[in-house]
């Protein structure tokens, strides 16, 4: 008669212990993440697997995504570069095909395949409390590390083999952060050992201030340096003055 009671007590004890010790919140989150990963995997298999492989292991057409991290997905899909419309040297920025929730799901799935850089929190890319000196330092960092490809105004530039550094005029702060950490296409990876989070924040702060400052000195003529200056100098200067010269030469003393 004692056996069933012992069993009942033991079960009761275990149940009580479980109820006390198990972290209820985490289990809910786990479920959420798991369902996100499942949703991401489904999306992945529909939209990405053709090139990246069913398990994101990579094919001859596209690289493996194991270990690229959530940041890479958020950058590539969030800027509309992926899914790639056609093969080429580099996917151009495009219209985003997915909702933010779907991008998060895809990112969660790819992040679950292997550890990699994560999506930055809003704290990590916030430029609110940067001082003027820190923003100026961001300019120095930008000119040292970025302007060689992205141009002094972040207007972009050409790279070998049909690749290019895109313009940064429309790029959001977190996408800049993600590109720095994941090194898309020809871009090198800048790890936290090379550029700290603070450095990246300063660079983002510099770019945001540069692009929101009124343009001193008139129209920027495309912001691509002396090529467009020369072009406009010839068109407006020589072109305009030759027209004036033609008009002047027609105005003779006899032409009354």
């Amino acid at each position: 008669m004692a056996k069933p009671i012992t069993l009942l007590l033991a079960l009761f004890l275990m149940g009580g212990l479980y109820a006390v010790l198990s972290p209820a919140g985490q289990s809910a989150a786990d479920g959420n993440v798991n369902s996100q990963i499942v949703q991401g995997k489904e999306l992945f298999q529909v939209s990405c697997a053709t090139c990246h492989g069913l398990g994101a292991e990579g094919t001859s057409a596209a690289p493996s995504l194991v270990g690229v991290g959530a940041a890479a997905v958020d950058f590539q899909v969030g800027t509309g570069r992926m899914p790639m419309a056609k093969p080429g040297a580099q996917a151009p920025r495009g219209k985003t095909e997915f909702t933010p929730a779907e991008i998060s799901a895809l990112a969660a799935y790819v992040a679950s395949l292997g550890a990699g850089p994560g999506i930055p929190t809003s704290q990590q890319v916030s430029t609110n409390n940067l001082t003027a000196e820190e923003i100026a330092r961001g300019g120095e960092l930008f000119r040292t590390n970025c302007s060689a490809c992205h141009n002094y105004e972040g207007d972009g530039g050409a790279l070998p083999n049909g690749k290019y550094a895109p313009s940064l005029g429309q790029t959001t702060a977190s996408h800049i952060y993600e590109a720095v950490r994941t090194g898309p296409y020809a871009m090198p990876v800048f790890s936290a050992g090379t550029l700290t989070d603070q450095d990246v924040r300063e660079i983002i702060g510099y770019l945001q201030t540069l692009h929101s400052t009124p343009n001193n000195g008139g129209f920027s003529l495309g912001g691509i340096g002396p090529v467009s200056e020369g072009l406009w100098g010839w068109i407006v200067g020589i072109g305009g003055l030759v027209m004036v010269a033609m008009w002047l030469a027609r105005k003779g003393a006899r032409a009354r």
Binding site: R143, A148, C149, H150, N151, E229, L231, G233
Partner: peptide
């Protein structure tokens, strides 16, 4: 000398 920018060109 350790910095450079894309679009570095001389005047025309």
């Amino acid at each position: 000398p350790n910095q450079v920018t894309a679009g570095s060109q001389p005047d025309w």
